[in-house]
Computed example of a mutant assay.
Amino acid sequence: MGKRQVIYTGSQISGNRDLLDQEINLVTTEQRVWHGYVTAVDQNSIEIRDARFAKHSFEISNVDKIYSEVVTDY
């Protein structure tokens, strides 16, 4: 069993409902990394919940990339 990393850029994040409930690493334009689960996403912002159940909101314009891992059979 392996893993595959999926990278989303800012234009792919906006309104992408497939990101909901996924565990992600979010990289801001300031090069800060946040880890958590996506709880909400719309055209202008994304919200994640971290391991301490705190919620954090980010404007899409302040997000550089989002990294997600997918478990594969190969």
Rank of each mutant, 00 (worst) to 15 (best):
N25M: 05
H35R: 02
E47I: 13
H35V: 12
Q5A: 12
D21T: 08
E30H: 12
F53N: 14
N62Q: 06
K55P: 06
V41Y: 01
V33F: 02
L19F: 04
I24G: 00
D64V: 09
I60G: 13
N16E: 08
N44I: 10
N16K: 03
D42K: 06
Q5W: 07
T28I: 09
E47V: 15
A51V: 09
T72V: 15
E47M: 03
G2N: 05
T29E: 14
S45G: 13
L26Y: 00
Q12C: 09
T39K: 10
Q43D: 14
T29G: 09
E59P: 03
K55E: 03
S11P: 01
D50L: 04
I60A: 10
S11N: 09
I24A: 00
D50C: 11
D18S: 14
L19K: 00
T9C: 13
I66W: 01
I48L: 15
A40S: 10
I66A: 02
D73Q: 07
V63T: 08
Q5P: 05
N62R: 02
T39H: 09
K65L: 15
V33H: 02
T9D: 15
R4A: 12
H35M: 11
V38T: 10
D18K: 04
N62M: 06
K65C: 12
S11R: 10
Q31C: 12
E47N: 12
T29S: 05
E69Q: 12
D50F: 09
N44S: 09
D42G: 13
K65E: 08
R52G: 11
S11I: 02
Q22T: 03
A54L: 13
R52Y: 15
I7K: 13
G10W: 03
S57Q: 14
Q43L: 11
S68A: 08
Y67D: 04
T29W: 04
N62G: 13
R17I: 12
H35Q: 08
E69I: 06
E47W: 06
D21I: 07
R32L: 03
R4D: 08
E30C: 05
L20N: 06
I7P: 13
G15Q: 01
G2F: 02
T72M: 05
Q12R: 14
F53V: 04
D21F: 15
E47L: 12
T29A: 12
W34L: 05
E59W: 01
W34H: 14
V70Q: 12
T28K: 07
I66S: 00
E69P: 09
D64K: 13
N62T: 07
V63F: 00
I60N: 06
K65D: 06
R4P: 10
R17W: 08
W34N: 09
Y74N: 15
Y74I: 04
R17M: 09
A40W: 12
V70P: 04
D64S: 15
A40T: 11
A54R: 06
Q43P: 01
V41A: 00
K3I: 11
Q12F: 13
A40I: 11
Y74L: 07
A51Y: 08
V63C: 01
E30T: 10
Q22V: 02
D42W: 12
V6G: 01
K65W: 15
I46A: 02
